[in-house]
Design a binder for these strands. Structure first.
Lengths: 256, 256
DNA sequence: AAATAGACTTGATCCAGGTCAAGCTAAAAG
DNA sequence: CTTTTAGCTTGACCTGGATCAAGTCTATTT
């Protein structure tokens, strides 16, 4: 309990309530490319609440769409719960990433999102955002870009699940994390996983055991060093090669 | 050759060059919900070219984004080609569906799209569309909705590929087609597949042989009648049950 | 410090669906 | 008409990764 208080102090208002223009993420986040005046207008509709803790939900499948969410610090997973209690992990979200875009279609969330570790989150009421984007063309453009990017990413993921082997999937996953950490100014070689093996497996369409065995094997092959959540990538190049299916590509479809 | 001329006559200008307001797809297409005056403005930027033929490309992976495309009649597949000549089928598109949305992010197409049969296509120069959507809020809203819907669909597909068995995938695929035909005023029970078994398998992450065997089995079980491309669904309810994974849902992730 | 529990690892076994091989069919080309 | 070819089906076999079954390790609780 005393611990939690301390935690709060460390990340509190100085860090959380800063405006977009003072935020280190500005160059890869929603306000990217806006003029200072436009950024202020956006800033005024963004809510910055106290930090959320592991397991807290941003929203649940079926909730009415109120806000879109951006990770400021920490990480979030989104997932589609199934009736029977199972789930499909749809994505892991790092700082600067916009969450909840699949809810615009019918004003209702199509998946759930919960934070994986203590996280600061920016909330953006969608109605206000939409209005604002009508009067700020570059904000509208940025929205189109972010929605489009989400589609591209999902399509990549479809290819990964449709065509790639277990080892290709895990290698691609680690490289994706690595690249995203790098863009955020963190080490691309040395990082901590905020998600469990189970969640990684679920995301990649693999059993936990398979993920575990692959970590062991990758370590034996000196591709990486792993100790629980701590990952050190030792050979990005070989991982890169592993992640691209080199082998059987015989399902080429004949053109007409 | 005489045949082709006849074809052209049948679908030519009367049918192809009609304005949105006279198009039967208006209620499920981009102009959905626009005022007549707004629809005219949209109409003015849309190009309607002569029909394309099987195998013609709308665009190829890497092309600069010029237009988004809407199927008017016929069908289109989008796919991610891989270096080695293979491909991952990303989707099949029926009349009223918008194609190319993943290109907005970086103004370059991230996949290819080719027509599966003789098809009429509306082309919408994206720059014009974006401008127009700045001055027509309901058009902007519709764009957000369509982009969001694409994300939801891709997420559904991720779940299908990540969690479902071969039989669940094929059942879900057939039901999806059935529902989409229904919305377009066609029979949900009786339709023709415009894609090959190979393409279906590729899309669903299955080998052709598996798709073929499943069709045979579904027919033996009186779920459907299949003869080459012609499908008759005999028992939607049982197909529905098949498509939802009823069995092992033991990968529930423990909450914290 | 002992107990409990969740997360992870490792080994043994199994099977859904992939791969390989052969033949069939229909439609297009000659 | 016959031939060719691409698409589809069916059977036999094989394998990657799932499942089952024990542990082990860490962290939290008591």
């Amino acid at each position: 309990m005393g611990k939690k208080l301390a935690d709060r102090k460390v990340l509190s208002f100085e860090n959380i309530k800063i405006a977009c223009k003072n935020c280190s993420l500005v160059s890869l986040c929603l306000p990217m490319g806006l003029e200072p005046e436009e950024m202020d207008r956006l800033d005024r509709i963004i809510k910055r609440s106290r930090p959320l803790h592991r397991g807290d939900h941003l929203f649940r499948d079926g909730d009415a769409l109120q806000c879109l969410y951006i990770v400021k610090t920490g990480s979030v997973k989104s997932y589609a719960p199934s009736e029977e209690g199972g789930e499909q992990v749809l994505g892991f979200h790092l700082p600067g990433e916009l969450i909840g875009l699949d809810a615009i279609e019918n004003s209702r969330h199509n998946c759930s999102a919960k934070v994986l570790e203590t996280s600061a989150i920016c909330e953006i009421p969608f109605t206000n955002l939409e209005e604002l984007s009508t009067s700020i063309p570059s904000l509208q453009h940025q929205m189109y870009r972010l929605l489009s990017r989400e589609i591209s990413q999902d399509e990549n993921m479809l290819t990964l699940l449709g065509k790639n082997s277990a080892e290709e999937r895990l290698a691609a996953f680690l490289l994706s994390l690595s690249a995203r950490f790098k863009r955020r100014g963190f080490s691309p070689y040395d990082f901590y996983l905020s998600m469990s093996r189970h969640e990684i497996g679920n995301y990649l369409g693999l059993a936990v055991e398979t993920v575990s065995r692959l970590f062991t094997r990758f370590q034996e092959e000196r591709l990486l060093e792993v100790e629980r959540k701590h990952i050190q990538l030792l050979d990005l190049e070989r991982l890169e090669n592993l992640s691209k299916r080199s082998h059987n590509d015989k399902d080429r479809i004949h053109s007409t």
